[in-house]
């Protein structure tokens, strides 16, 4: 069972890819757990997610808080605060 992760803006640039399918360990339950897990995957992830509190996350293309469970997510978007408009 894998989950699709999509990255944008400087999160995408620092991780070095726009998206990936990744198998997550069972103890990754919430968005916060996911960000901490990704930080441990290598230097590029550490650089992108150094300050997880500023990172915004969307599950199935809707904004969620960091305490949100990720169970059942088809697609998880990980990105910096938005600067459109």
């Amino acid at each position: 069972m894998t989950t699709k992760l999509v990255y944008f803006a400087w999160v995408r640039e620092r991780i070095g890819k726009p998206e990936e399918e990744i198998a997550l360990p069972a103890d990754v339950v919430t968005v916060r757990d996911l960000l901490n897990h990704l930080k441990g995957l290598g230097e590029e992830y550490e650089n992108a997610l150094q300050y997880p509190e500023v990172i915004r996350v969307a599950i199935n293309q809707e904004h969620v808080e960091h305490n949100e469970p990720i169970a059942g997510a088809r697609e998880i978007g990980i990105f910096p605060p938005m600067t459109g408009g």
Partner: peptide
């Protein structure tokens, strides 16, 4: 829209340099 719609701006400098987000 400015704070919730997922858009991000990157600046390109006058000298052709790629700037910051």
């Amino acid at each position: 829209l400015k704070t919730s719609a997922p858009f991000w701006k990157k600046e390109h400098g006058a000298g052709g340099t790629t700037g910051d987000w």
